Amino acid sequence: MTTILDTPATPSPQKAALRAQALARRDALEIDDRLEWDPEIAARVLALPVWKDAAGPVSAYWPMRSEADPRPILEELHRRGLPLGLPAIVARRMIFRRWAPYEPIVPGGFGTLVPAPEQPEVSPRILIVPLAAFDRRGYRIGYGKGYYDRALSELGPTISIGIAYAAQEIDAVPQEPHDRPLDWIVTERETIRCG
């Protein structure tokens, strides 16, 4: 039996318009500001209470275009001894492969960089996710394929942390049945506990 999570998400025209607006705002941010804000976002993420008893694995993403950069977070978590992973799309499904700072990454489609295919899969317990837009309830607009929503459903109990710039906030993300809210959203200005 096929469920809504087994099939690729059908892009919502309303979400597409909100995504385009939020990405335009993000792309318009000065690079010098973003370079200043990324360490502030990292410090806020690393101050979350989720790390107190965390054993990992933790997955984030390799930044592309003007996304908030999670690499300083990953470097610190690696220093603390937590196992890490990065996502990869395989057969239209998001998986997570083991990765550590300075290990090789390869092109993974959609403009992403991912761990080499020979790296073993991991099942993250904490997931740091990118987003195009977000609201204070924890709902996000991604890039329209639904990969993270499906992954969050498949992974089971997982703490999800979205990182973004404050300019990406919108009043309300239109909800669809497959949407999975995030537990936390962190920007350069604040930490939002969702739900």
Rank of each mutant, 00 (worst) to 15 (best):
T2H: 10
T2Y: 09
T2S: 12
T3I: 11
T3P: 02
T3K: 08
D6N: 07
T10I: 15
P11K: 12
P11S: 12
Q14E: 15
A16R: 14
R19M: 10
A22N: 08
R25Q: 14
D27L: 07
D32I: 13
R34K: 09
R34E: 00
L35E: 09
W37I: 00
D38Y: 03
P39V: 12
E40C: 13
I41H: 04
A43W: 00
R44S: 11
V45D: 06
V45Q: 04
L48A: 12
P49R: 02
D53Y: 04
A54R: 05
A54D: 06
A54W: 03
A54H: 06
A55M: 11
G56A: 05
P57G: 07
V58F: 03
Y61N: 00
Y61H: 00
Y61F: 14
M64D: 08
A68Y: 02
D69Q: 06
P70H: 01
P72A: 04
P72R: 02
I73M: 06
I73H: 06
L77M: 09
H78L: 08
G81D: 03
G81T: 02
L82Q: 08
L82F: 07
A88T: 07
I89P: 03
V90A: 10
R92I: 13
R93K: 15
R93C: 12
R93Q: 15
M94N: 02
M94R: 01
P104H: 05
P104W: 05
I105V: 15
I105L: 15
G108N: 03
G108F: 03
G111F: 10
G111S: 11
G111Q: 03
G111T: 10
V114G: 01
P115D: 05
P120S: 00
P120E: 02
V122S: 05
P124K: 01
R125G: 04
R125V: 01
I128L: 08
V129D: 06
L131P: 02
A132F: 04
A132E: 02
A133F: 09
A133E: 04
R136T: 07
R137K: 14
Y139C: 04
Y143L: 10
Y143R: 04
D149A: 09
R150N: 09
A151Q: 00
L152W: 03
L152V: 12
S153I: 04
S153L: 09
L155D: 08
L155N: 10
G156V: 12
G156Q: 11
P157F: 07
T158M: 09
I159V: 15
S160K: 00
S160V: 01
G162N: 02
I163D: 01
A164N: 04
I170K: 08
D171W: 11
D171V: 15
A172G: 09
A172M: 13
H178E: 13
P181Y: 00
D183R: 06
W184R: 07
W184G: 08
V186L: 04
T187M: 07
T187N: 09
E188R: 01
R189T: 13
R189Q: 15
T191H: 05
I192D: 00
G195K: 14
